[in-house]
Amino acid sequence: MKGPLFNSAIILTGMYLALKFILPLLTAPLPSMLISLYMLLTLSALMIFYTMSGTSLDEFMGPIARFLSGENQVGIAKPARLLVLVVFPLLVGWQTYTKLAPSDQPPAENRTIHPAPPGEFVGLANPYPKTPENIMMGKGLYAAYCSPCHGANFDGKGPAAPGFNPPPANFADPGTIAQLQESYLFWRIKKGGVGLPVEGMPWKSAMPRWEKELPDEFIWKIIMGEYDGAHQSPRTWEEEE
């Protein structure tokens, strides 16, 4: 029974089980899009490896070709072949139907988390010096206005966070504010969720439009406090001295 085809079946099954059932034991479940992607890569790797030489190609494709052609088949192989030839197209059809049939589920989301800022916010620099006093003031303002959602530890786990979907941003994650310039944060805080462009799905964000409540000075100092508290640095084009 051993051979390239058998090995491939074992590897593909093992991979699927690991992605679908074992990985979620350690972290959040993967979306089906990512599972399909990784399965496709695994299948491609197997195809490449087993078609590298004539011998392995024959070992890999031979059993499939012989089974499907029905040559010299006896015993249970005959009805098994018929079963595959009938069930496989039905499965494909069923899969297609389930993908296309109308459903009450909302479509998969493709939200741009960090859309491009409007021109007037590009290139702005924080006008306040990075002094301990300003940072402290920023952290105080953050505690008052931002921490209920973004958390006292800047990790997006404030007491109000469980009420929001999508959840508030986690500033301690190196994939969020560390990738952005200060002017970007200034735009996001000042204009809030409603200020997002369409691709950012403004209807999905509960971020308040803080320009109504806070002067620019407070916003700039909150940004300073956020970076300091989350142990991140803003993206700049000059190195700090």
């Binding site: 990985l23 350690l26 972290t27 959040a28 479940p29 993967l30 979306p31 089906s32 899009m33 990512l34 589920q105 909302p106 998969a108 989301e109 493709n110 939200r111 741009t112 988390i113 979907n165 999508p166 959840p167 994650d173 190196p174 994939g175």
Partner: peptide, 23 residues
């Protein structure tokens, strides 16, 4: 960085950003 996910999947991940593979 941001994954295409259904509402249910996004809820389980806590957003469209996977906590482990998002890096």
């Amino acid at each position: 960085h941001s994954l295409v996910a259904s509402l249910e999947e996004a809820r389980k991940m806590g957003g469209t950003h996977h906590p482990m593979l998002g890096v």
